[in-house]
Nucleic acid binder design. Structure first.
Lengths: 131, 131
DNA sequence: CTTGACCCTGGAGTGCACTCCACGCTTATG
DNA sequence: CATAAGCGTGGAGTGCACTCCAGGGTCAAG
C-alpha cells in the first residue's frame, strides 16, 4: 500500500508518517516505482505497528522509548524465545501504567465518597508514589 | 511549607514548581515574609495536587488538559454536586485510558500466545481504535 | 553587620514531536 | 502529451514542558 493509503488506514498525516520513518519507527519497503526517489510500500502489519505506536503515546511513552522496544523486538525476531521476552517486557511496562492509573482512580473514588459523606474526616491523600 | 520543602515532598524541581504556578496549576498562598517579592506558602493538599498532576502526565495528558479540569474543580468547589460532577468527569477520562491500556495489553497477550503456538494462523491485529 | 542559604522575577535556551513549506521527479487521466 | 495528482527530499518553524541563568531582595546564624 502507498503512503496516502497508509495515512488513511492509520489516521496519521503524511508528514507524521515520514517523521516516524526518519526516526526508525516504521521501515516500509521501497517500490521500484518513483525513479530516483522510490515510493514507499507499506504492509498491513505496518498499520498494526502504527496503531500500537499511537496507543503507547496516549499512555505517555516517548517515541524514544517506543523505538527502543521496537528495535529490540526486531533484533530478536528470529528467536521465538527472545520475541516472547520482549513482548513480556512490553506487557510489564504497560502494567506499571495500569497500576498508576488504578492509584489515581482509587484516589478520585475515595474523594467522591468523602465529598458525598459531607466531608467527614480527613480529605483523602495520595501516597508518595516515587518508584 | 516553603518552596524547597515542597520540592522535596513532591520530587519536583524549583523551576518546575514555578512553571506550574505560572501556568495556574498550583496556587500557593503568599507569606508576609520576603518583602516586595513575597515567599510562596504551600499547603499539604498542594502536595496531593502535584502528585495528581504528575500521575496524569505519565498517563499522557497535557498540562492544558489537566489545568482545564483543575480550574473547573476550583470553580465548583462550593457546591458538592458540582464537585462530584467534575470528579466523575475525571474518573471517566481515566477509564478511557484504562480501556486503551487494556486494548494494548490484550493485543500483546494474543501475540505472545500466537508466537507460543508456533505462529499458527494469522498474526494478531489491532482494531482501528479511532474514537 | 556580614555572610551564606533561600527566595523572587524576568527571559533565554533546550528537546521532543510534529507541521509546514519549497522544489523537483513520476505516474495516472482526459 | 499536457496537466493534475501523488511521491520524494531537505530544511525551517511551532507548541509544549521544562531548564537554566542573571540580577536582586530577605532571613538566620555567628
Amino acid at each position: 500500500m502507498l503512503i496516502s493509503e497508509f495515512a488513511k488506514a492509520t489516521g496519521l498525516t503524511l508528514d507524521t508518517i515520514r517523521f516516524y520513518i526518519a526516526k526508525g519507527l516504521l521501515k516500509p519497503d521501497r517500490s521500484p516505482k518513483g525513479g530516483s526517489n522510490q515510493y514507499r510500500l507499506f504492509k498491513p502489519e505496518d498499520v498494526t505497528t502504527a496503531r500500537m505506536i499511537r496507543l503507547q503515546q496516549t499512555l505517555g511513552f516517548t517515541l524514544a522509548e517506543i523505538l527502543a522496544l521496537n528495535d529490540e523486538y526486531r533484533a530478536g525476531e528470529h528467536s521465538s524465545e527472545r520475541t516472547i521476552e520482549v513482548l513480556q517486557l512490553q506487557i510489564e511496562r504497560l502494567q506499571q501504567r495500569k497500576y498508576a492509573l488504578e492509584v489515581a482512580l482509587s484516589f478520585l473514588q475515595r474523594k467522591v465518597d468523602w465529598v458525598k459523606s459531607g466531608k467527614a474526616g480527613p480529605a483523602p491523600q495520595m501516597e508518595d508514589d516515587r518508584r
